[in-house]
Design a protein around this nucleic acid. Structure first.
Lengths: 229, 229
DNA sequence: CCGAAAAGTTGACAATAGCAACATTGAGCT
DNA sequence: AGCTCAATGTTGCTATTGTCAACTTTTCGG
């Protein structure tokens, strides 16, 4: 029987869930320092283990950061999902998602940069499956709102509409992504006007897309590349 | 008389222009490795000087990377400027700038991320003056195209139009910025369709802005914050 | 022509990433 | 139970790095 509460000061040899503890510590340090340049040893210290224990769970720092990034994607997907819960109007759902997306970035720039800043992307390696899953969930939410009429008319999610929906998402996503990063980098501001600015931009997009939606060319994709290639 | 060409193999005690050499080496390594995690010592080695020589020109690594970033901003400003040279149509000028911007990012993602990825932004310190200068130049080009009629009607660059022009730039810039980063991170693709995708997106924006241009609220800004605050 | 400042060098220190060898524990098998 | 073994954690080590301090060589202004 493993009872790690019996003796608070006498940590058992085995931590219980170091993997989780290390990732949590990383999220903490990342939020505090807003930098990915912390040391694995620092995390080990925070978790109260020896400097090399993390290596039993992560091959190297890159792998650890990938895990942190994955947690970030899951959190973002959840926040976007939660934000739309109970909203009947598809347009309102889309707006809520956009706000949640921007908020997520502004509230933790370093995490957002880690997620999207190509720490893994640089290598030719694919993104972890868990990230892709979260990303697909986010995309599905957006697709749902669009097909439900967020752009002024119903656009059923059929094969015929696929490239048009992707066209709309390309515009919508890149606009929100860009705004988020400009806010984060304080190249537009002030941060307090985040909500106001994002609504202005969103308004512009929705109006534009209501008039005409581009169709993506053959072979173009939006979202994390499929696993195979 | 200092003649550093007289004896190729006998490097003089003083390098001549180490500052420049270090920055050049950094740009090289950055382009090759697509990562800012190189060592100052590596740069010193490449420049053929001792491991501490760079510290006579840069207080620390951050300062060196700031200098690299500044060079990147200058290059980007020049590329955008060159791209518009000789184009009479303001709309074409705007499109050319957008393409140059995106190209710059896709051709050297690591540099682009360094420039916009808040290596300096994290600290409360302002961006170097040289960066702000380049940024203002870029913004001036965009303002020029817009006021010349890139959005379908002339919008003179007057105080009355200031917040409307900034509104247009907010949309235009964040859209291009987002598209660039999504391309860089391969979250949209393929890279070969860069030109096609950016033209599609640009088209959507210009059409949208031709219909209505948002007016930014009081206190909002677009571009690097002014020096004072 | 001299003295100080600029530019470069050598040597040191603490911290880090990551490897290897060793120690401890718990889970499965008999 | 008792044994075994893989998972987990630890200690010790090496190579590398950022940065400081002290020293040397040039260059340049007065």
């Amino acid at each position: 029987m493993t009872n790690e509460n019996s003796n608070p000061d006498q940590r058992p040899y085995h931590h219980g869930d170091l993997q989780r503890a290390i990732v949590d510590a990383a999220l903490e340090v990342l939020s505090e320092s807003q930098s990915t340049e912390f040391s694995l040893r620092e995390l080990a210290r925070r978790a109260g283990v020896s400097h090399n224990a993390p290596y039993k769970h992560f091959a190297d720092k890159r792998e650890l950061l990938a895990a942190v990034s994955a947690v970030g994607f899951e959190a973002l997907a959840r926040q976007m999902s939660d934000a739309t819960r109970g909203l009947a109007s598809p347009r309102e759902r889309l707006a809520a998602m956009a706000r949640a997306y921007i908020c997520g970035g502004v509230n933790n720039p370093a995490l957002y940069r880690l997620m999207f800043g190509g720490y893994l992307t640089d290598q030719q390696s694919d993104r972890p499956a868990i990230e892709r899953t979260a990303a697909y969930r986010m995309k599905a939410l957006v697709v749902g709102a669009i097909s439900d009429g967020a752009l002024g008319r119903l656009i059923p999610h059929t094969a015929a509409n696929e490239r048009m929906i992707d066209g709309a998402i390309l515009i919508f996503w890149s606009q929100m992504h860009g705004l988020t990063l400009l806010l984060v980098d304080r190249l537009v501001g002030p941060g307090e006007a985040m909500r106001e600015l994002s609504d202005i931009v969103l308004q512009g997009i929705l109006d534009g897309l209501a008039n005409s939606i581009p169709v993506l060319p053959e072979g173009a994709w939006v979202g994390p590349p499929l696993a195979g290639k």
